[in-house]
Design a protein around this nucleic acid. Structure first.
Lengths: 110, 110
DNA sequence: GGGTATGTTTCCGTCATGGAAAGTGATGCA
DNA sequence: TGCATCACTTTCCATGACGGAAACATACCC
């Protein structure tokens, strides 16, 4: 099964793209770590995670009985991973022909 | 001069990202071609171009006296090209570790 | 001058986003 | 047992982005 390029607006929003990218890099991540990474407030992260959860892209777990406060762990679901891959494929399809660095002599109008 | 990775919200919006990607591929593009490419109405494209223009990322030219109606041509400015490259660099930085499979014949990269 | 092509601007409704504040439920402690 | 605290979650509200319709502006063609 390949990830067909598909532009996904749920993922594309800047904060959510960063969330998904971070989650894809690590298997699971704590709520607070994501919050620090993004530099956003609790409500903002909570709502973005809700959006991703509603799309079926992330799963939240609150392991209890471990001593210490209950903390929320966030992980990509299979669906989320697939959707992210598809979105990244689409981004790459859009931008593969572009040089990302090393600006050379270019013909700029104006 | 290299394009430092920098997330650019002006460019990141889906339609504008597609506009910029298209403009980077071709030196200059007609308004109507962009409109067809995006599948949007005149006002929508016009306003996105305005946004990009205000940011100094695109230049609009209306060459006259050529016979036929005046048509608007759109091209990336040097600044726009640079900003796009920086944004793409940032996207790649975010997503380089991900396996985004592409649909179609496998292009076994070395 | 009238009509048409090519955008542009205005108007308006809708939706996304973010923070503050209030709410929720579990945990720690006296 | 009861209250404070932690770790979010939800509600409320203000702001801004976005898109289309309609009106507008301008340049060409006859």
């Amino acid at each position: 099964m390949t990830a067909e390029p598909r532009f996904d607006e749920v993922i594309h929003a800047p904060h959510r793209l960063r969330i998904c990218a971070a989650l894809a890099a690590a298997s699971e991540t704590e709520f607070s770590v994501l919050r620090e990474l993004l530099g956003v407030s609790d409500p903002v992260l909570s709502k973005h995670l809700r959006t991703l959860q509603d799309a079926g892209y992330v799963a939240l777990t609150k392991p209890t009985g471990r001593g210490g406060r209950v903390r929320t762990w966030v992980g990509l679901t299979g669906k989320g991973r697939h959707a992210l891959q598809a979105h990244v494929a689409e981004l790459r399809r859009l931008t593969d022909h572009l040089p990302a660095e090393s600006s050379g002599p270019s013909t700029a109008p104006g």
